[in-house]
Amino acid sequence: MFTDWIYLGIFLVIAFALPLAAITFAGVISPKKPNPIKDSIYECGIEPIGESRIQFKVQYYVYGLIFLVFDVETVLLFPWAVAYNQLTLFGVLEAVLFIAILAAALIYAWRKGALEWL
C-alpha cells in the first residue's frame, strides 16, 4: 500500500534533512575560534542591559486571537468550497450568512479599537 502520504513523508524528511546536512557539513569545514567579544550579543555595539526576554504588549495576542478565529472559519469553509459546484443557491447563501457573522466579529474588533497598533 503506497499512498501519496508516504511519498509526502519521504519528501518532507528529505526537505528537512538536506539543509540540516548542509549546515552540519559547513560546521565541520568552517573554522571554530570563539572568543567572548565575538560571541557577545550584537546590540549595535552597546553592552546589552538586562535579559533579552522582554515583555510584549497585548496587541500581539489580540491579533493572534483574531487570526485564530478567521483560521477556524476558513477551515470550516474549505469543505463548503469543495462542494460549491454541487450546491444550490440556498447552500451558498447559508455560507454567506456564516461569513457575514464573522464580518460582524471583525467590525466589533474594529469598533473596540482592537485593530489599532499603538
Binding site: L76, P79, W80, Q86, L87, F90
Partner: peptide
C-alpha cells in the same frame, strides 16, 4: 470532502 461540505449546509 465534498460530502462533508454538502452536509454542512444541508
Amino acid at each position: 470532502l465534498a460530502t462533508l461540505g454538502k452536509e454542512l449546509v444541508n
